[in-house]
Design a protein around this nucleic acid. Structure first.
Lengths: 242, 242
DNA sequence: TGTACATCAGTGAACGCGCGTTCACTGATGTAC
DNA sequence: TGTACATCAGTGAACGCGCGTTCACTGATGTAC
């Protein structure tokens, strides 16, 4: 492979990468306006000024395009989450939790259809491949960092510092095993009860965001800013963040 | 209107009601196997052995059929919730909460697509009409009954009996107003902080169920029975149920 | 009880639409000698 | 540097599909006198 050959090769590859990006960009636009089921290869091609069959040079099928969008969505949310959880000082668990929650909600509100794509009801007939998992776990790891900090540095479990506001009952056997697996994946060494409470807070967070986004709060808690802020603080105390 | 006329009229009406039920039943079957977007008037008609245009005698459009299914789903869940919350003794707030949560989860697991229809991502292009609200609020009222019992009978807010395990910070102004509206709708007279914590637990419950149903727990907390049970107890304490 | 009329359920054909995917092709870009 | 060949991107036509909805119609059921 000569230098010249390699240069022209990357030129072609660069064009390919560029168009791949444009296709995903346009697909994301359609996702935002018509939802996942409204995503049509023909419409994407039309908008890009090419013929629909040309897209098959880039994605072997509609499902593969959808998979790419899902991975991108997880990564975008992962970026936002990591940036937010990293912003606040290491020791300030509550601040990091607050920043993480706020960033996740902000991303969800800004990209409702992408949020629905990854946390909403599954697209019927579509089976998410293994490839999405690596990106999906990034958001959870941002939580893990906070839980690990809380558990390791502040005496959670020994009753001092950031201990939770009331004692947690011991975990039943299966759950203890499961939280162990979660701990290994996102917060090694963190005590099981902290993980369990973290996961409860985690489901609360996403439940609240989904309710807001999917219209369950209209007419009652909408706009939900204050409710969100209040819940975040309550859950921080619940987890035992100082 | 003679007795005979009225009898034959009801005979016709009965046939109509019967077929309406059959249409919805078949539509629900398709919903369960192919999801909301897979619901097709033509397929329903085919399965019922009639021609697709005949359905328009019963539902003016596909969206109206979908609306009927949504209302039925809310009502079915409402039935289950009311039965569960009413089962346990009035005074046993925690028992009623446990029964309510368990019933909602059981219904959701038994009817995943109907759950997704009402609590999942909205169907693009479909706008739920006002008519669904009356049925939707029934489930929330089952929660309200429990919160009202907790708030009124056990001294929550005065620090005795079923008081929450740690003091709740005062609510910001907008949120206080919103919880007031919620209280008026589902649990009149209940203090705002109890309502707020109830709603936090509520979003946790549905977040957890959605995560389980939509595949977010696969490989970690799945099967989720123990996690669910643990979270329900934790949230009961969080709300302040004795 | 019998007859003339109105209401209603269901039919069958048609309209117009958009979709995912395949395939043989042309022409440009890159590669090897 | 120049030429012969291979790779690849994009074209255009076509296949086969299912959908929601409309409309004029037939025949059965119900109603009024």
């Amino acid at each position: 492979m000569t230098a010249h050959a390699s240069a022209s090769q990357t030129a072609r590859q660069r064009a390919r990468a560029e168009l791949t990006r444009e296709i995903k960009h346009e697909a994301r636009r359609q996702l935002a306006s018509r939802g996942a089921q409204g995503l049509s290869l023909r419409a994407v091609a039309r908008e890009l000024g090419m013929v629909s069959s040309a897209l098959y040079r880039y994605f072997p099928s509609r499902d593969d395009l959808l998979t790419a969008l899902i991975i991108d969505a997880y990564d975008a949310l992962g970026d936002a989450a990591e940036a937010a959880a990293g912003d606040a000082a290491e020791a300030d668990g509550r601040g990091r939790w607050r920043a993480l929650c706020t960033a996740i909600r902000a991303w969800a509100l800004a990209h409702p259809h992408e949020y629905a794509l990854i946390y909403g009801s599954p697209v019927p007939g579509y089976q998410a491949p293994q490839a999405t998992i690596a990106s999906a776990v990034r958001v959870a790891r941002a939580l893990g960092g906070i839980l690990a900090g809380a558990g390791a540095g502040t005496g959670v479990g020994t009753g001092t510092g950031g201990a939770p506001p009331w004692p947690a009952p011991p975990l039943p056997e299966v759950l203890a095993g499961q939280t162990g697996i979660v701990a290994d994946a996102i917060a090694p060494g963190t005590p099981a009860p902290v993980i369990a409470r973290g996961l409860i807070a985690w489901t609360q967070l996403f439940g609240m965001i989904s309710f807001e986004l999917f219209g369950q709060l209209v007419g009652t808690l909408d706009p939900a800013d204050e409710f969100f802020g209040y819940a975040v603080e309550q859950m921080a105390s619940f987890i035992g963040l100082p």
